[in-house]
Nucleic acid binder design. Structure first.
Lengths: 339, 339
DNA sequence: TTGTAAGCGTTATCAT
DNA sequence: ATGATAACGCTTACAA
């Protein structure tokens, strides 16, 4: 049998409004009454219905985390859990819950805007620039609904958090230069792709600062996956030994895996003949042979920073949109440890 | 300004109960009225408040997915996203949402039982045998609250889904035997650990069926991680070449990574001198050198099967608790491809 | 087929 | 300090 605030009121011989005030620890209720009612609530094992509370309070105390089931998930997949835990670490203590929001871009009836936002099931939303379309973002802004993106966004001003990808490019390239590499290639990423452009800019900056030439043929465009890494390295190995790159910066771990495989098959010595450094630090990076020098991004922190920003937006809707760049961390391993 | 069912009723000149019936597509409403009201709803951009609906319907249409932030997450981490997507694939079409439930074992006030179950924020729960304590499971049963575990459970009868770990052990070991290996070791897992016992049983079964001896010193107990794999292989290499195992079955990919590393450092040829086969197929298994023969578990399916079972429990609470063993799949790669 | 009115379990506003 | 009563936005008998 379900027990409600009214049952408690009856048992305590008070009005249910009094019980409600006790639940919310109102200062207008005497200590004695509070004690008595609280005891009764324990005894009767009462927990308020959150749904009724929310209806009355007109707030769902719930935030949504966007994902797109229909989409390729290679990139965020291994990081998803950490991001989620990062978000929980900030919203949990504030009594918010988190519900998973599958976008359903193609089904107007199940689209998250309707299912979760318009139906007021959530008070705020965290997404990323891959699963939130410009159209949806615009709609959210129009509704003045609080949301934060993970990943840079520049179609119009919204709140976002991202890692400093340009700085990451500088860190990887700078490290290779310090190790004495002089002819550094960059593998992966499509032209016009924002993520690529930022990372590549950092790479170029470093070369320029070192007074080295930046040659277009040292950049291998393509989808940042294993086979692109593999093919790119094979193609650079077709040049004579003296004319090929002595190190590479990879857009992703997948690219690096492919590059590693190609180099190994061709008998190229890593790190002596070819240094390899890569963006992203998958849990597997330490297990390649040789282990990969890579750029660690703290995904827990990505989540918690996004959540902090979202809570701020929910609490102070009129504050301007903020952006935040988190710093990556260089993890040096053997793949760049030149003798 | 928020628009409600009453606004629609006014605009359409009908009672709000009529609007409600249209929303729920009641057969008692004439086609004409439905059309008219639906049009008005579009025009006025109306979406019902899910909170009010739930309060009235006395169901939250929401299921919880348990996780434990405070706990080591090595095992499920890479699979979490897939499991979640698997769950969503079955509950989504049924109009359920999913909220993340951090257990909070140590904080009675924020414990998920209170926060989510007793407060009726969710109608059902999916957890695993690592994050749900016996005590909590018992409490859920007492409340007759629907829940399903991922992972075998035998403290008392509950619904659960798991992979057939014994069969997995037979598949890996059987494969090694087919390849001609004859002295097979088993690395990882603590005595008394359910998961270990099941997997090890399959291994023993296979050896027995092949008429081979089962020797206690061929099993290396320990936490199933990288360093345990590494140490175990080092220790077996201390025996003379003729007296050491010619193949190993690993409890986890981490163990296999460590084993691979040790073998490589010692100059042992894989797969010729030592075959390696492992439970679990992390996304990185294909990228080791040589690529690892491993046991693929379909984590999407794990999630969807658990969700199917949960929906059944919610819909027919009186049905007996069910258990389901899913079949793993052997992925043969070079680490066991004996010449 | 449509309307009336009483819930659903809280909170919030006024009285007292 | 406590109590009555009207929200909150929807559903659901029961009437008409």
């Amino acid at each position: 049998m379900k027990i409600t605030i009214q049952d408690i009121a009856n048992a305590a011989n008070v009005a249910k409004s009094t019980v409600s005030k006790v639940i919310n620890d109102s200062p207008k209720i005497s200590g004695e009454t509070k004690r008595k009612i609280r005891e009764i609530m324990k005894e009767m094992n009462f927990t308020p219905s959150s749904i009724a509370t929310r209806l009355a309070k007109q707030s769902s105390f719930n935030i949504g985390l966007l994902f797109d089931m229909s989409q390729d998930k290679d990139y965020l997949d291994p990081f998803f859990y950490n991001i989620m835990v990062g978000i929980e670490s900030v919203i949990g203590p504030l009594k918010y819950e988190m519900t998973m929001a599958n976008v359903h871009h193609n089904d107007p009836d199940r689209h998250f805007l309707k299912r979760l936002v318009l139906s007021r099931r959530i008070d705020g939303l965290i997404g990323n620039n891959a699963n939130l379309t410009n159209e949806a973002a615009a709609k959210l802004e129009e509704l003045r609904f609080p949301f934060v993106l993970m990943g840079e966004y520049d179609a119009f001003p919204v709140s976002w958090v991202d890692f400093d990808n340009a700085e990451g490019g500088r860190m990887l390239t700078g490290h290779l230069l310090e190790q004495g590499y002089r002819d550094i290639a960059f593998i992966g990423g499509e032209r016009e792709e924002r993520l690529f452009e930022n990372r590549h800019r950092g790479y170029s900056d470093s070369l320029r600062a070192a007074g080295l030439p930046i040659s277009a043929e040292r950049t291998f465009h393509g989808i940042a996956d294993d086979s692109h890494g593999y093919e790119s390295v094979l193609s650079m190995l077709r040049s004579a030994p003296g004319e090929r790159p002595d190190a590479i910066v990879c857009m992703s771990n997948q690219v690096a895996f492919g590059a590693l495989r190609a180099a190994k098959e061709a008998g190229v010595q890593i790190p002596n003949e070819l240094g390899i450094a890569t963006f992203d630090d998958f849990p597997f990076s330490p297990h390649t042979s040789p282990p990969l020098t890579s750029l660690l991004i703290d995904t827990f922190k990505l989540g918690s920073a996004a959540a902090d920003m979202l809570i701020e937006r929910i609490s102070y809707p009129e504050l301007p949109r903020r952006n935040l760049l988190l710093q990556p961390e260089l993890i040096v391993r053997e793949s760049t440890a030149r003798a």
